[in-house]
Design a protein around this nucleic acid. Structure first.
Lengths: 230, 230, 230, 230
DNA sequence: AATGAATGAGCGTTCATTCAT
DNA sequence: CATGAATGAACGCTCATTCAT
């Protein structure tokens, strides 16, 4: 036997006989390495939960040494927090683009519902991350100074829409923007996050184009049917 | 290490018609042993998720030998399925008690919302079990013949209520009972299941008596505000 | 839940709804039970070795309760010894049938070689049992009073044949019958007992009809080529 | 880069009689670690068979962490294969030293018989390894590309000796070198591999100097008595 | 004679993490 | 900045055996 290698290592990137190799993976680029680890960790945590996630798999999928993971993030829990913060930052960034204050209130609510639906549809990993965070009783988030400050602008935006709608006489009064925001997220989250059990129980394909259109329609009617002053 | 958590294991009584049993753990009572394991497993899976659950802890809390767990349930996954089936059976049993078909439609919906709210409030473990089941893409439920047959009665009950309300002119037409059922569950599930992250994000205590009353009120208004024909 | 059954038991012999069953397994027949256990044990030890044999599998294949195994045989090692004794008794019985003293010496040797070949061919389990016994340094046999008295009748028989052959001038003198007996057994044992490694190494099918005929021919020539006085 | 030859090239760190050793276990020496595990595994598999071998004992005797065993070899079965390949490589290397083609045919055969006898006498573990490999129906070897190619040179060497002997008129014609090689190995293998059961049955000490000399003499006479053309 | 229930010890394997270079 | 080697503790699971009936 020629060289001593662990039995189940990843395949060598450079063929043994080659004279020179052009380093296909940009070594010594700390930012890229860090980002690759973070991406791989997000996928792993989303796919298996915090308890089921494997540090080895994260390192392998990041094409990084396992040690680097600890170098950059400390430990598994802190890495999870970093992933969580990144996920929150991402959705908050996307929400900022909505500019609801510039639109007609009913249309703004419709847009908010549609945005929430589409965001979770395109980022199912976010739901799994939140589930893991809650399974662990939020202890990760408690260590984060960042996350708490990211939300007030969005709540204020919804509040402004509700107030405009009320003033113009189309919306009912006394609606708590936080409750409304939670409800809108809830209607999507439960449907998509529990798609496997729900589809098993109801014997329906919940993700067919038709089913998705129906769900989005139902959610819009539900929220606006409630908000409209008749 | 050898300590037994008094959380979920012991306080079962013996209704079998036998005289009295002074020994806290009745040996040679397979039904009780099985039940103790199932209870301990439910608590463990709910507290730590499927991946984070520890077979040793389940056995210890069930005051049983680890081997018995495999004797009765085969393996960890099948035990999880048994827990899941038990949890579904429990909520379905509770739902049957509602007898919505005997009540005035708006009151029936109010009762349904309140029931759902209270059930999840009193059985937070159910949400974690469902999250685990979905994290694993529903593969456990797919092996279960039981669960799929347990649901149609409840959907039919909601359908009957909606239809009665529509006929009497108070409810709007064209509401899918499955969508409505999912939405009612969603409004509770997301709020309670994500209580840790939500409370961290919004800086609110979501479980204070006042907050709970507000949430229940909001949910009722939301659903009925949508259903009522104006 | 109605009845408590282990998860992975053997299939019930009587369908649940059946009214009467005719007891297909003769219960309360100790000799049969003992024999079934012994047979199952022989197969298990031969297939997996002593270390790899599983008491559960033996009981299951014997269609007996595991406890019976201990009731009749004490423990796994003693059961192995019983199997071993049975195997020795069996080959000794077969050897007695040969009656070599009544045949012409060269033909007697030919018959002995053929018998040995065929016996191991038809009872491959015997080789595996002996290998296990030797792996454990013969400690099982040392506890056996039986086996030591079962001396192969062959040795005396072979001695007589050799002596007759020598006197008639066809066989060479000075051949130790024990050495010859061991050699004849060896020529078969190694070929058949190592059939997997040998066929892998030499890239030959050692058990094709042709290969078997060639081996038997070679062994006869080898032994007689040595014995014949030229 | 030095190559890793298991079992053959590894210098013992501490001779048994030595007084003191300076660095008992050289850390961070992967080649040595790997070799220590391989050695310990060979001893364990030989002593207890594949089924009876204990991974813990291998690690302990290798003075290595159990995890390293999996790091280098994947799992127990693959480790067994590595041991098996090493054992085959070792005997084949030793056989190459024989240089039978340079010697007079009868003397070459005598040397081959004596070598085989002595090799198994000095390496009794090899027989147990082969027994385990065959007990598992050769499935380990089937995964090995190496072993199959190691044997043709040796068979060719025997063939050359037989052919030279035949041409010079001392050996009979028509002897299959593979059959002969198997027979020579068999005569030793059965005697030594079954020494415990045989000595128990025949009431002889098979390993006394006198018994060993007699066996070697008998084997030589048997093989040459067959080969010689009279 | 026969059985289902129960057990402690130990199985092969994998975990998150750290060391030495 | 990056890596292969190493670790102790635990993982899910199974072992031969015994208990109570």
């Amino acid at each position: 036997m020629a060289s001593v290698k662990p039995a189940a290592g990843k395949p060598r990137k450079t063929p043994k006989g080659a004279a020179r190799q052009p380093t296909p993976k940009p070594t010594r680029d700390p930012e890229r390495t860090r980002a690759r680890i973070l991406d791989a960790a997000k996928a792993e945590f989303a796919a298996h939960g915090l308890g089921g996630a494997r540090v080895d798999r994260i390192a392998a999928n990041a094409d990084a040494n396992k040690r680097m993971l600890y170098y950059y993030f400390g430990n598994k829990d802190d890495l999870f927090l970093a992933v969580l913060e990144g996920a929150y930052a991402h959705i908050r960034d996307a929400e900022k683009e909505l500019r609801l204050t510039e639109i007609d209130p009913p249309e703004a609510i419709r847009r908010l519902v549609a945005f929430t639906w589409e965001y979770y549809l395109e980022h199912p990993e976010f739901m799994n991350l939140l589930n893991s965070a809650n399974l662990h009783q939020g202890r990760h988030l408690k260590k984060s100074a960042k996350v708490r400050t990211m939300h007030s602008p969005f709540v204020a935006m919804i509040e402004e829409v509700l107030e405009r709608g009320r003033k113009s006489g189309v919306f009912r009064a006394g609606v708590d923007p936080v409750q409304l925001y939670i409800s809108i997220a809830a209607l999507t989250y439960f449907y998509l996050g529990n798609k496997f059990t729900l589809s098993e129980i109801f014997g329906r394909d919940l993700l067919s184009p038709r089913a998705k259109a129906e769900r989005l329609g139902h959610m819009g009617e539900l929220v606006l049917g409630f908000l409209f002053k008749h």
